[in-house]
Design a protein around this nucleic acid. Sequence first.
DNA 1: TATCCGTGGCC
DNA 2: TGGCCAAGGAT
Length: 427
Amino acid sequence: MIGKSAHPTGVLRANQVGGAEGAVPGSRPDEPASPAWALALLSWFEGHRRDLPWRRDPTPYHVLVSELMLQQTRVDTVVPYYERFLRRFPDFAHLAAASEEEVLRLWTGLGYYSRARHLWQAARQVVARYGGNLPPDRGVLLSLPGVGPYTAGAILSIAFNRPAAAVDGNTARVAGRLLALDATTARGHRELADRIEAAVPPGRARDFTQALMELGALVCLPPPQAPDCGRCPLAAWCLWCKSPQDRSSTGAAGARQPKPGPRVVPRAVLVVACGNRVLVRRRPSRGLLAGMWEFPGTDVREDGPRAAALRTALDLGIALGLGIAGGLGVGQNCGHLGSAEVDLQGPAVHYAHTFSHLRWEVDVYWAKLPPAPGILESTGMEGGAGPPTVLWLRAADLASQVPLPAAFRPVAAFARSLVEGGAPPGG
DNA sequence: TATCCGTGGCC
DNA sequence: TGGCCAAGGAT
């Protein structure tokens, strides 16, 4: 993205852009003038801004929700999630009154699920401490869970129209090229934020922040694509555009260290069906897919996926209070959980799912339990207080009942076919 | 400072 | 098909 070394002459020339020659008179004599490129950028934005749902009424709540959703996530992906979320939770009060479970469910498929929990907690703080009105205070914003320097700057500028820099990936690339600054270092990042903040045209912070990001998204593209300098409103001032011989230091990708591939984690997953219902459980509240639901399963150790599936079945029998009988164990396919006979089949499905740092190789086993009195009423791995961590749910509406990560979609599809079609495929 | 956290689109 | 990455934040 941004190279490691500074432009050899960039600082001096960039300073001249903001100086007397290229400057525009400020609104007051004692205010530093905005550079000419800042006004050119605003003019361009007026003719090229996309109609995005969170731009129609940029309240603090709308901006907070959209910025949390947009962290490391593409605009096209976010739009339907944002609209659904706003229909269900139109303001801080509605979101604060909801359950964490429902917030997670609306976030299902969007990824980075800690963002959903943070947003929910932030809404509760805003209601509890500020009466449902977010104050335009950087310190307060930074105290909200999930809000860092970028998001705080985005809320201050977009929602409150305050002159604050919001340096994200797009802005760092655009302004980094324009001013020949390397935003990959902490020092360069700080200098970039200072320069951007000083460049905000008076009263135009809202549009200025969005214009920088918009230019990065539509024109000043990252590698491996190339910036379309012919359509860029800042080409006349841009040091990257004017110095083709020196682009390696301000816009091209630097030499990257070869990154090791994701760690492979074999995993045995179990679909346990009874009638038209299947068994799901909640994941731990920390770590990967924290608080989301899953089909029960476990990482495969040295003794293979079938043994792992059988161990999971045993754990489930204990969790459900069914008791264990009949010698269900490693190396066998069947046994008894209480009065219910378990006949473990499979693997019926094999698939892979890659996360950022690990790759699940999933073998899906299955078992159909005959209807037995008491089985479907058994929930709760804790066996007492607290929310249930094991539930029987109708296979047809799994997704509408619990937050099920995308990683388990193939399992859910298999579970439906198992319940609806009788004899399942594979096995 | 480096690593972890999800997903889908892209070539 | 596989590796890369995107409107970052928390630890």
